[in-house]
């Protein structure tokens, strides 16, 4: 599903923010990605989300080597990936409903199908009454839930979430983690970047630990490590 081989990444001519990253995520796996602030978690997620290219090494997604992909192949690949950004990245002028509907619209789904699914999902994440609300009028937690709904609406094969519960209360955070688990059970590969060690220990999934751009715990085929050191 996802394979990184000696991947390095730098922004422009700056220093490498990721160094010699190698791991393999099996289809249907669920991993946490953690590490101190500035360790390179967001950069790793950018590579997974196909928003940036590595400066060296090989990345294989869905059995295709990313550097060999033509530009025209990228949209189809990205539609297989759902991303929940830490800063939500919602379109402020669109309603919650239209924000969540966007991936389906881009994939060419029909309007009647789109809006039925979207309304149901928004209901599930507790935003059934705010389908027409625009992001600036929503709280941080509500925006986060819209962002999660947008990421999962088209049943992605790979779901990446950057601090998905960061703006929510504990109950809603757990509820959303259960949603991610449900998606994982039906075959979606999930990677959740978080600082929340309690959350990591509660779910007990494999953990990738990043520090100074180096991956110290690799995701392997074998059972997940139980370690959960405080990154701070």
């Amino acid at each position: 599903m996802v394979r990184f081989e000696n991947v390095g990444m730098r922004y422009g001519l700056g220093p490498e923010v990721l160094r010699d990253i190698s791991f393999n995520l099996l289809p249907g796996s669920f991993h946490f990605l953690t590490g101190p602030t500035g360790a390179g978690k967001s950069s790793l997620l950018k590579l997974l989300a196909l928003s940036h290219r590595p400066s060296r090494g090989l990345i294989t997604l869905f059995n295709k080597e990313v550097s060999s992909l033509a530009r025209d192949d990228l949209p189809a690949m990205r539609r297989k990936i759902g991303v929940v950004y830490q800063d939500f990245r919602l379109l402020d002028h669109l309603s919650a409903l239209d924000n969540v509907a966007l991936p389906l619209k881009l994939a060419g789904a029909k309007n009647d199908q789109i809006y039925q699914h979207v309304a149901e999902l928004l209901e599930w994440v507790g935003l059934g009454r705010q389908v027409d609300a625009k992001p600036p009028t929503l709280s941080g937690g509500e925006k986060q839930r819209v962002a999660i709904a947008r990421a999962v609406i088209n049943r992605p094969q790979l779901l990446i979430a950057d601090e998905p519960t960061g703006s929510m209360d504990a109950e809603m955070g757990l509820r959303l983690m259960y949603l991610l688990q449900e998606l994982n059970k039906i075959g979606t590969t999930v990677v959740v970047a978080t600082h929340d060690l309690e959350l990591i220990s509660r779910f007990g999934n494999p953990v990738m630990y990043l520090k100074d751009g180096l991956l110290t715990t690799r995701a392997q085929d074998n059972p997940p490590p139980k370690e959960s050191k405080d990154p701070a």
Binding site: S51, R71, P75, A76, R78, R79, R89, L102, P103, L106
Partner: peptide, 16 residues
Amino acid sequence: SEVIQVLHLIGARDNY
């Protein structure tokens, strides 16, 4: 540019 980036990342083609 920010909206374009979001559209790209959720699968929009350049043509769109």
